[in-house]
């Protein structure tokens, strides 16, 4: 995966709480190969029910602003694929589903936390339209709808997003220590050795 440090593009608002992984992509689409692209499944049912849905009107959106507990629900990584394949690179919300946020960072999507009051102000400003946005991972600063914002970003997440690393890339950097630990662990806990 390619990393990124700074993006510029359009931002839209999704003024909902608890936008869960089942809404982000209904399970029935998950047997489709990723190579076909998941962007068309993003918020599929909501977009199908409402032709004027904000994502139907702004397919070029790269930044999403939403309410608390965005991405709640399951470990469904396809929810992140749908956002990424649609073109979204950053979601701003007061809080995120934990597992979703981890999946997001593994796939180059920034889950950026902002205080609730700032999110509410942004939602009011953007409304049902769109606006200009600029997000900088290296400084933790963003400008959305003319608002200058500082978002919280874990240093490890920053490193992963900038370099395009996922958990396996990070873990593989400690291969020697892991091998040594494994050997020592099995010596001290022989009962846990897999029986062949």
């Amino acid at each position: 995966m390619t990393g990124w440090s700074r993006i510029e593009g359009r931002a839209v608002a999704l003024a909902q709480e608890n936008v869960d992984t089942d809404q982000l992509i209904p399970a029935r689409f998950m047997s489709v190969p990723r190579s076909e692209g998941y962007g068309r499944f993003l918020l599929h049912d909501a977009r199908q029910d409402d032709a004027a849905h904000v994502l139907n009107r702004h397919s070029e959106a790269r930044v999403l602003v939403s309410r608390r507990n965005f991405g709640s629900g399951s470990s469904r990584e396809a929810a992140v694929y749908a956002l990424v394949d649609f073109g979204i690179r950053a979601v701003f919300a007061p809080s995120f589903g934990d597992i979703f946020a981890g999946n997001a960072v593994n796939n180059g999507l920034l889950p950026a936390r902002l205080p609730q009051a700032q999110v509410e102000a942004l939602l009011a400003k953007i409304g049902t339209g769109d606006c200009a946005a600029c997000v900088d991972l290296t400084t933790g600063q963003a400008v959305i709808a003319g608002q200058e914002l500082s978002f919280e970003l874990d240093p490890v997440w920053q490193q992963k997003l900038v370099n395009g690393w996922d958990d396996i890339d990070l873990t593989a950097q400690h291969k020697e220590q892991i091998t040594a630990f494994r050997a020592a662990r099995f010596l001290a806990h022989e009962w846990a050795l897999p029986k062949t």
Binding site: D20, D22, Q23, P26, D45, G73, S74
Partner: peptide
């Protein structure tokens, strides 16, 4: 475990 919209079907 989940009562999300559309979870058990549209």
């Amino acid at each position: 475990n989940r009562n999300f919209k559309g979870r058990q079907g549209r």
